[in-house]
Design a protein around this nucleic acid. Structure first.
Lengths: 192, 192
DNA sequence: CTTATAAATCTCAGTACTGTAATTCTCAAT
DNA sequence: ATTGAGAATTACAGTACTGAGATTTATAAG
């Protein structure tokens, strides 16, 4: 996954380290406070930036473990996400898959192509709408997910075990609220 | 950024929608509970998976706004992160930049090359170690960051405004703890 | 000095996607 | 029937990186 010798079997996850997927969060240290000696209350922007940074870093750190787990079976997280959603919900239209796992339209095509090449997923036609196609697990795909999903769940549980169960529940509530609000928000575009 | 008509000036951020960067989090619905009628307490794995999903989605939703903001100036988040860290900390060795923004070694080279081509950053040699090089902002780079950083901070503050300030502080504490613990954790490798 | 090991950066082929445009089909309204 | 808007998928070129290895220089040990 990232510049690690292949011989290593256990290694620390990168902290602020050299490997792992790219983070795109700044290490935003708000500019040093010139009113030396006295502590100022953090501004709304300071708090928000801090939140953004720790959010990105936490996601990255957990993603690193999740990726490492699915990589053991030659899968990317996006591929695994497709397998898993088909496993838990049954056959879905490609568009539905796209919305569930949040990739681009081209992305689903590409991913389903690759999973089909591996024999894990197949396309089926939709009777009522000939534009649309279903993605469905093959027996081999079903068998694979049944085998690796529990391991994966354990890997994730491990990755987030720095938080107690009740802390995890608090975090879930906060992050759900945050994510929903941010998704609802209009995006500013334009090139000033 | 994602399958949106370029004419749109304001649009909702994708919720579980068609666009946005890829999420690699499953939409993990834990398998339906067969012990119908009675609610079972969620297992540790259920809670952990839920946390992972909302974490990934929240990060994605906020990243979407952050990306849209820096894209207005023709920058990626990784490029902006470099500009910003150099702005707030002064010239840094490439390796230091790499560790701060968490990209691969090839990534820093690539990113600094591009920022140099845009005239925003320059390489300087290191006197004590001739293997190493500094990255430093040019006057143009400095000027750019000074101008766009406050806007960016406001964009982020907006993106996370679904949470009150005290909720943001709670989230920061939880996410910091989560991120640090996950980074500390050894990564399981091997192909079973 | 010499050799070895390791650090810092760069090179470059490869990858996992994104985003635009094209294709095929549906549905509603003429 | 025809037309036209729009939905679902696919094609494909482009992008922003990653990761393994090469190169150059430093540091330590003999």
């Amino acid at each position: 996954m990232a510049e690690e010798p292949r011989t290593a079997r256990k290694r620390r996850a990168p902290r602020r380290a050299a490997s792992g997927a790219a983070i795109k969060a700044s290490a935003a240290a708000p500019p040093a406070d010139r009113t030396a000696g006295r502590k100022r209350a953090p501004s709304a922007e300071d708090t928000a930036l801090k939140l953004w940074v720790v959010l990105a870093r936490a996601q990255l750190a957990v993603a690193y473990h999740a990726e490492a787990d699915v990589a053991r079976h030659g899968l990317t997280l996006a591929e695994f996400a497709i397998l898993e959603v088909l496993y838990h919900r049954g056959p879905l239209l490609l568009g539905e898959v796209q919305r569930k796992i949040l990739v681009s339209s081209g992305g689903v095509t590409y991913l389903v192509d690759r999973l089909a090449a591996k024999g894990l997923v197949e396309r089926r036609e939709c009777e009522h709408d000939r534009r649309a196609r279903y993605a469905a697990l093959t027996p081999a795909g079903e068998k694979l997910v049944a085998r690796i999903f529990p391991e994966h769940a354990r890997a994730i549980a491990d990755a987030v075990s720095g938080l107690s169960k009740s802390e995890q529940q608090q975090a879930i509530a906060l992050l759900r609220k945050l994510g929903l609000a941010a998704s609802e928000l209009p995006v500013e575009k334009g090139t000033p």
